[in-house]
Design a protein around this nucleic acid. Structure first.
Lengths: 351, 351
DNA sequence: TTGTATGCGTTATCAA
DNA sequence: TTGATAACGCATACAA
């Protein structure tokens, strides 16, 4: 160790080995570290003169606070963990973007993780997040294993589940899935359809997909409609997947007059497949879809879609977490409304 | 081991006020904190017996390390910052997913931030990231202001720019944009097209969009093709935007025989618009596009597209950062190859 | 193999 | 208003 300069401050930065610390700033400004800290956090507690000196020193040294030290002392990181599966596709990115924006507005940063399919559950990801000291966690589209909730509880970490079944533990930000299913089915029933197909998510992977299917089934039953087994495909959400699913269905030639798609990616893919196969829509087959990316309304022929409040989920989740982190007891989140986007598709059911 | 407690540890958790610390584990296991720390980080330095005791204590207390303290002591956070604009749309999510996966495999977590349009530059976001102690930074799709690079350099933080001009400062992970433009134009020239349109990103916002346009122009010039001003639209990347851009172009009825789209979102939207307007493709108008989402090939009618190596950019960037953080001098990244996805679209140029 | 003690950079408490 | 100083929880060099 070179001359440790026990008393007086070095005139210039002696070694730029490490980036400047609070102590460096204090030395340069000729004040104590406490004063520097206060100057940065509560400037009005400091006299204008010293404040100026401190700020100058901060500027000259290019001081950037060490978040680890701050987190250690303050016991919070201003960081929020998000566990998001299949981030690269479907409508999750839009949701995450909304979440990030909401949190960023209050100075929080998002730690993004994807659940690792390998180990037992996503508890290892959660563990990593907790080690990173996240102040809160947002869970998206995962079936919460009890362990996850237990860990969260044990660490007193606020969390929300997004787009999850409303009975999920913890506070859930979602929309009325049953109403959404109902809107689609009622619409098709009104057009005279009796036998339907469905292209949607994998029920084996996803509790949400199971519920979606269940809700559709109930809505169908209420109106005497039926889902035909040969016209059902479970797949990932994506354009390509919708395309292939629709092709598979078309090959089986099931006696259906309408297809419901679980997302507008799937719908777009399905329509492309029908187009290529020369199957006229809606003359020979109607298509309706859940709309999570705002582009279904632009597809030809006009689709009737239920618009899902994707970005709103992200925003609400962000607000909810902020409130909870700040100790504000926020109202129990209500289900967000869904909306039927009716198009002037007056075509009656074929057949 | 029930009666471990050799000396005088609390029989149960006395106050669960805070979550367990190393000291708590040490006390319960009847060892020192150093031993616990070593047990967790380098287990083979510890005797089997004590290791077992420590692990039991860890288990019983549900111990999770405090990352802030660890980061403070180790001077690293195992965290990587990513600055990603508009990641809710276009092809950025896929890239981010690839980046996250690559980093997560090595125990790194991604801190995701979107550049805030408000303040001068994204230096405030970068500042936040640096305060959080990120070990490295990945910049995506932004025009790096000198300040950003300066801050990065001042803090000795490794970084890469992704999908940026190759001459950008720092190491850039990208692909050969000129080759991509060339492939599209050569293809259209080969079909006999002479006058083209283009729907792409906003050149005013994006250096990348400027270059893309420039590259297309050069490729056109080489073959004597021309871009028609009335058939040029700059917009955001999205399905809806492509739809509206194409409608705008159609209204102006420019004398073009082919349209180039900057992304498959735009292409999909454009095709939907043409479809709705009853403009036959490719009989009356050819459409070609840059393909960043793997779904253009499924669009009808067959599009010829250039596949852009989006996920590979994320992976390469991740690897590059990992290497740099570990001090490994990794080879200078080469431009990733692009690929023409030719479809059996043998239609010659109309007119 | 294990224990002890120090440092990491902030915040916060308590005096001055 | 400011300064000294004690946490904060972990890693690690050094001792034993």
């Amino acid at each position: 160790m070179p001359a440790a300069t026990p008393s007086l401050p070095p005139p210039e930065a002696p070694n730029a080995a490490r980036s400047a610390s609070l102590a460096d700033v204090a030395a340069l400004a000729g004040v104590s570290t406490g004063t520097v800290s206060r100057t940065l956090s509560k400037p009005d507690m400091i006299s204008a003169a010293t404040r100026q000196r401190v700020m100058d020193a901060v500027e000259r040294l290019g001081y950037v606070a060490n978040g680890a030290a701050r987190a250690l002392a303050m016991r919070r990181t201003r960081t929020v963990g998000a566990i998001v599966p299949r981030f690269g596709s479907s409508s999750f990115p839009a949701l995450v973007q909304a979440l990030e924006a909401t949190l960023a507005a209050e100075g929080y940063t998002l730690l993004l993780s994807a659940p690792d399919p390998r180990p037992s559950y996503e508890t290892s990801i959660l563990r990593t997040l907790l080690e990173r000291g996240v102040d809160a966690v947002a869970l998206l589209g995962i079936e919460q294993p009890p362990q996850v909730l237990a860990m969260l509880a044990a660490h007193r970490t606020p969390f929300v589940t997004m787009w999850a079944p409303p009975d999920a533990a913890g506070h859930c930000i979602g929309f009325d899935e049953q109403a959404a299913a109902s809107l689609v089915i009622e619409h098709l029933a009104g057009l005279g359809h009796r036998t339907l197909g469905y292209i949607g998510g994998r029920t084996v992977d996803s509790e949400r997909a199971r519920r979606r299917l269940n809700d559709l089934g109930l809505a169908c039953a209420k109106r005497g409609l039926a889902l035909h087994p040969d016209a059902m495909v479970e797949t990932e959400h994506g354009f390509r997947e919708g395309f292939e699913a629709m092709n598979a269905i078309a090959q089986r030639r099931p006696p259906v007059t309408a297809i419901v798609c679980g997302s507008d990616y799937l719908a777009a893919g399905a329509l492309a497949a029908l187009d290529q196969a020369g199957i006229a829509v809606p003359q020979r087959l109607s298509v309706a879809s859940f709309n999570d990316n705002d582009f279904a309304p632009y597809l030809r022929p006009p689709l009737t879609t239920v618009r899902l409040p994707i970005r709103q989920i992200g925003e609400q989740a962000g607000r909810q977490l902020l409130a909870r982190m700040h100790g504000t007891t926020s109202p129990v989140p209500a289900l967000l409304p869904v909306q039927l986007m009716q198009r002037a598709s007056t075509a009656a059911a074929p057949r």
